[in-house]
Design a protein around this nucleic acid. Sequence first.
DNA 1: GTGGGTGCAAATAATTTGCACGGTA
DNA 2: TACCGTGCAAATTATTTGCACCCAC
Lengths: 133, 133
Amino acid sequence: MKGQDIKEAGLKITLPRLQVLEYFEKHPGEHLTADELFTKLRSENSDIGLATIYRVLNQFETAGLVVKHQFENAQAVYELDTGEHHDHMVDVETGEVKEFFDKQLEELQVQVANKYGYELIDHSMVLYVKKKK
Amino acid sequence: MKGQDIKEAGLKITLPRLQVLEYFEKHPGEHLTADELFTKLRSENSDIGLATIYRVLNQFETAGLVVKHQFENAQAVYELDTGEHHDHMVDVETGEVKEFFDKQLEELQVQVANKYGYELIDHSMVLYVKKKK
DNA sequence: GTGGGTGCAAATAATTTGCACGGTA
DNA sequence: TACCGTGCAAATTATTTGCACCCAC
């Protein structure tokens, strides 16, 4: 049962938390803002509050259940943490967000950090792209 | 004279605009928030307003005089646009921002975008690092 | 039963905008 | 003199927090 993840995070299994987690699981690959999630859940007859969404997302982020991204825009977007690291491509024409992973790029970043005398802890990389004609 | 850049951007040469531009030119490599710039200029006996800083920075960004970055934190940071593209490394222990450029990384990003059927328009890449012991 | 969890509304933080006045061209 | 530009304060936007009530354990 999915409540397991919530319990393992040291949180009580409550309806709002289940609804948020369930939404992400039912829509794999979606990246949405707190507000978008609020609207979607409300339209599914949930009576969840926006503040709760922010609270739950923060708790889930701390627990490693979701990942938060701050792209160019003001609002942060969240996605389910599949456990597999990946980076993002944003199609500048459609706003669509695509995940990708490139081993060579990852390794090169480690090497570049080393070259400057640093150890790489984390990175964020977003490629802004458009479809080739 | 430095007012030149401002005039070329189609803007009147005013004291606040000169002060902002001058601050960046006198402190090469600095990345600061609107609020930090406000405090610095005020301490230099300017009577510039925070709203004006935001307005001027936006105009300068549009004109290509400064570049705006949104790192993990809430506040955006600005730096003078030297015309040379570079990415950033943030020391997670000190908060220090270092610029770097790696040709191989740049090229690899183009290739990766191509591999997925896209054309690379722009990218943002921030390496979070700490000093090697 | 009790302490954590929730919705709502009010508080914050960063940034933008309205307005009357001031300075540049 | 024309208007654009400015400082200040109020408005906006995204997010957080206080509080009284509620529910999972």
